[in-house]
Structure formats: structure tokens, C-alpha cells
Simulated scan of single mutants.
Amino acid sequence: MSYSKQAICTTLLYFMVSGVISANETRALDPKAPPGHNFDLLDWNISLPIDTNKDGKVDTIPEAYLEKGFQIAPYFYTREDGGMVFTAFVDGVKTSKNTKYTRTELREMLRRGDNRVKVQGVTKNNWIFSSVRGQEHRKAGGIDGRLEATVAVNNVTITGKPSQVGRVIIGQIHAKDDEPARLYYRKLPNNTKGVVYLAHEPRKGDEQYYEFNGSRSSNAKDPVDGIALGEKFSYIIDVLDNTLTVTLSREGKADITHVVDMKDSGYHKRDQYMYFKAGVYNQNNSGDPKDYVQATFYRLKNSHKGYEH
């Protein structure tokens, strides 16, 4: 569902209406402010793993309400250090019948609250690769894209099938039907640290995986170069033409980068449109119902050629 103002009031969801900062301003994160007052969220909506009006659909909070200061603990709120928290339990509501897992996840909305613009399709709400030819360049909200984030994963699942335990997606590029990029963090229950890895999904053919700092295997040993729960790290997901470049950055360590050639992946077709996603997409549906994933974002910036905000 998409929330109306009345629905938000009736479910006692908290939001504030002052102090929004522009995309060009920078300042320390305020632990007393809701996420939309610390981050420019006018070009995002959020899917929550709850269904407050029992219509069989997840609750989707539109751009304007995020900007005004919407938050709802324990799913989406401001942490004591000012970070933007995302939480998804195993037993939460799923976004559709075809979705296996729960999420608390931002979806890029380049229309920035202009409801006259269609959400799906090659419209001003979405972006395309510069490898797409034809009039789509004028129709799209932007060309190519870059997502920059600083994040700490606070919790991962510790119960469930060995193939699912400990996995969470923290950033994505989503296309019309497929996902050119999914960025995972995974920590196994017996390991002290976790790893980051990338999945690229061509429109046809097998998925391709790229490991950054250790094995994504379900029986991997404790990674020597791993990332602990609560440890901050940064990532960049960048598309230029048919090239996907993803970089993992950590303080005091050299960057790790993977470059993916997407010329044969099928995203240069005229019907393919893109949008970034960020937050937590729980990759475990077999664990205990109250087992959960959680991450805190300290920086989030999206940019595109031809997109001004």
C-alpha cells in the first residue's frame, strides 16, 4: 500500500515537519532528528515489512513523508549516534507473492514527490544506462548512476538453513525485472567477522559473483580481512555505459574494486529502466520468526548525469 496522511496518523506513526536539509548541505548527524532531517530522502520511498491496514501488501511510505520526518521503530529510525537504522525480521510481510524475503529498504524515486510522474517504466522517476539508444535519454530521469554509502551492519540472522543464515543485501541496482547489482554482507554464526560480495544478474544466463574480502561460502572460515558487526565501511556502486564498478572502502585499508562488463547482460535494451535501493533486504526466510537483520547508514548519496536536485 501507499500511505495516506490519515493512515499514518491512525497508526500513530511518528513524524516531524521542520528542519529538512537540502542535498547541498552537510552537517553532523543529529541523534534527535528523524532520518529525513539528517538525510535527503525526497528522492526515495521506503518499503516496510509490515501491513498495518491488513490489505495483504507491505506498507510503502512515499517520498514526501520521509522528507517530513517519518520514522517507526524498530524498523526505520534514528540511532543514538545519528545514523539511519533499517531492520527486517524473518517473519515480516513480503513485498509481493514472488518475493521470498522481507525488507526495510529505500527505493530511489527521482520524481521527488511529483505524483504525476509514473513510478515504473522509462520515465523521469527512473534512470537508464547510456548504452541505451533512442528517445529514452530524453524520457529518463537520469543517465548512468552512482550510489555512495557508509554503513555498519549491526545484526544478521543466526538461525535457519546454512545456505541462508547471516546474509543481508545492503545496496542494489534494480532494473525492470532483474538486478544488475546486489551488494551483500554475510557473517556466519561461528565467525567473528563477515564479508562483502557482489552479485550481477544478466537478463539471461547465470548470476555472477564477486567476493571482496573473503568467501561467501556457507562453511567459510573466519575471514582474515573481514568486517565485524558494528564496524563502519563504505561502498560505491557506479554504472557508466555498460560498465559496473563496485568499490569497498575501509579506514586504514586499501580499497577493493570489482569491474563488471555488462555489454552482454541485456540492459542496453530500450525498455530497461533502473533505480537504486538501499537498506536491508533479509536473505533468510527459514530462521526463527524474530531473528533479524539490521544496518545503520551514515551516508547515502545518489547521482546521475542529467539529474539535478
Results as ranks from 00 to 15, higher is better:
Lys232Thr: 12
Phe129Thr: 03
Ser18Arg: 13
Asn45Gln: 12
Asp225Gly: 10
Asn125Met: 04
Leu66Met: 03
Val165Thr: 10
Pro180Trp: 10
Gly306Phe: 01
Met84Ile: 10
Leu198Phe: 08
Phe76Ile: 09
Thr78Ala: 04
Ile237Arg: 06
Asn154Ser: 12
Gln164Tyr: 03
Pro162Met: 01
Leu240Met: 11
Asn282Cys: 01
Val156Cys: 01
Gly145Ser: 03
Leu188Phe: 07
Gly141Asp: 02
Gly160Arg: 02
Ser96His: 07
Tyr298Lys: 01
Ile169Ala: 04
Leu300Gly: 01
Arg203Gln: 14
Glu251Cys: 08
Arg216Trp: 07
Asn115Pro: 04
Glu105Asn: 04
Val246Met: 06
Ala181Gln: 11
Tyr275Ser: 08
Asp55Glu: 08
Asn191Ser: 12
Ile128Gly: 00
Asp264Asn: 15
Ser217Asn: 15
Arg133Val: 11
Gly134Tyr: 05
Arg167Met: 11
Glu105Phe: 09
Lys269Pro: 05
Gly121Pro: 01
Asp261Leu: 04
Gly82Asp: 02
Tyr275Asp: 03
Asp255Ile: 05
Lys176Asn: 12
Asp264Leu: 13
Val260Tyr: 04
His37Ser: 05
Asn154Tyr: 08
Lys124Tyr: 00
Leu66Asn: 03
Asp30Lys: 09
Tyr235Glu: 00
Ile236Leu: 13
Leu188Pro: 14
Phe89Ser: 05
His304Tyr: 12
Leu48Ile: 08
